[in-house]
Computed example of a mutant assay.
Amino acid sequence: MAPMLPAPRAETPSLADVLTGALGAILGESGRLALPPVRSAAVLMIDGLGMSALSQHSGHARRLLNALPSRGGSIESGFPTTTASALATLTTGLSAGEHGLVGYSVLDRARDRVVKQLSGWDDDMRPREWQPHNTVFERAAKHGVDAVIVGAERYRDTGFTEAVLRGARFEAYGSVAERIARGVALMRGSERRLVYVYVPEIDMAGHAEGIASALYTARLDELDSALRVLDAPLPADAGVLLTADHGMLDVPPHRRIVVDAGSGLWDGIRHVAGEPRCLHFALDDPAHAELVRDRWLDAEGSRSWVVTRGEAIAAGWFGTVRAGVESRIGDVLVAARAQVAYYDERTASAQSLSMVGQHGSFSADELRVPLARWGAFAH
C-alpha cells in the first residue's frame, strides 16, 4: 500500500505570511501573524536555517533562540523546500503554483529544456512574464513605503532578482554583520520603510559540509554575533522578523543514490528537473505517466513519494496552479521521504555528488523554519 501523500496545512502560518504581514503592519492591516501596527519593518531572511538545526546547535544561537516566542516561534516554508520557490512565496505571498517558480530547476517545455530558477535566466526567459504578480515591494511603493533590499552585490542585477525582488532599491554590503547592521539602521528615522536582508552563508555551509559540521556552527556563531545589533532598543514603532526559506538535513554518501545511465528507470524520461530530494520528470510521452510512476514506485516507493503531476496538484503540493504553470511541473515527481537524494549518472557532477546538506521535500527538517521577533513585533 502506497503511503499517504503529504498535504500543506492551511491552518499553519507560512512564508507567504511573513513579508506580506510586515507590509500589512506598516499599512495598518491585519494578517495571520497578528503583527501590531508599525512605521517600519524589516525581515531578515537566513537561507537554510531550519528549526531542527537550531535545536541541535542551541548553544551557538542564543540571541536568536531568545527572540523566538514560546508560541508561534516557527512556521512552515512551503513546498518545494527550495530557495527559488520559497523566496518567491515570501516576496509575493503566493504559493509555488501561483508564482510559477516550482523548483530549483524547472521544465521550460516551450523550448524543450530544463532551466535553473536562481541562475539560469537568459533572453528567452523574461522575469516579469515568468513571474507576473506584483511583489510585496511593488505594493509597498504604491502606498508610499520605501522598500529596500540589503544583500550581496552579486545578487543586484540577476534575472531571479527581477522576477521576485523587483520594486525595491538594492543596497550591497559585504559581511553578514554589515548587512544586518544596515538593515537595522534603516529602521531608524521618520520614514515608513520595509526592509529585506538576505543572508545565504549558512545555507552554503550546510551544502558544503552539512549541518553537523564545524563550518555550519561557525556560520551560526557569526549570525548570532551579528544579531548583537538588536540588543539595543529599536524605535517603539519599528519591528524586525527573522525567518528562513527552508531547513535541511544531512545526506551521507551511501544515501546519495546514483541511478545508472543504463537503468530502465530512465525509460521514457526526456528531462530530469527539480533537485536531488524532489525530482521532476518530463516524459517523451506524457500519456505514459502512470507507467513511469509505477516503475519508480516499485523501486523507490519505500523511501519516496512517487506521484503523477495530476496527483501532486490534487494533493495541494503546489497550492493553486495558475494557467501556464502546470507545464513547468514534471509529468512524474519523486519526493524523498527517507534520508536520501537521487542523482542521474548521466548528468551528476562531482560538486553535486559531494553536497552534504540537502532539501526540497516534505520532512520536518526541511519544512519547519524559525520566526523570531524583535522590537514592536516582540510584544
Rank of each mutant, 00 (worst) to 15 (best):
E11K: 07
F170V: 06
D203L: 04
G31L: 10
V176A: 12
E98G: 00
G151N: 13
L54Q: 03
G375L: 12
F170Y: 15
W374A: 07
F281H: 01
K116L: 15
L283M: 08
R156C: 00
S74F: 14
G319D: 07
Y173H: 15
G247Q: 07
Y198V: 06
V184G: 06
D331F: 07
W374C: 13
Y343S: 08
T82P: 01
R368A: 14
D245R: 05
E222T: 12
S14G: 15
G375A: 14
P80N: 09
L333F: 05
H143Q: 13
A67Y: 03
L215P: 01
I269V: 15
V197D: 04
Y173M: 14
A287D: 13
G239D: 09
G59H: 01
T83Q: 06
P276H: 03
H359L: 05
G330H: 09
H60R: 10
S14I: 08
E345Q: 15
R126H: 12
R346G: 11
H60M: 00
A67S: 13
L44R: 06
L49M: 07
A372C: 04
E178C: 09
W121T: 09
D298H: 14
R368E: 13
G78A: 04
G330F: 09
G264P: 11
A141V: 10
L223D: 01
R295L: 10
G120V: 03
H60D: 00
Y196P: 05
H99Q: 12
A7G: 12
A177V: 04
L23E: 12
G247P: 06
T217G: 03
Q351P: 00
T243Q: 02
V240N: 02
Y173S: 14
G93R: 04
R228Q: 13
D294P: 01
P276Y: 08
A110H: 12
D123A: 15
G48M: 03
G301E: 06
L54C: 03
V148T: 13
G48T: 02
L367N: 10
V272G: 03
R256H: 11
R368N: 10
D112M: 04
G262T: 12
A261I: 11
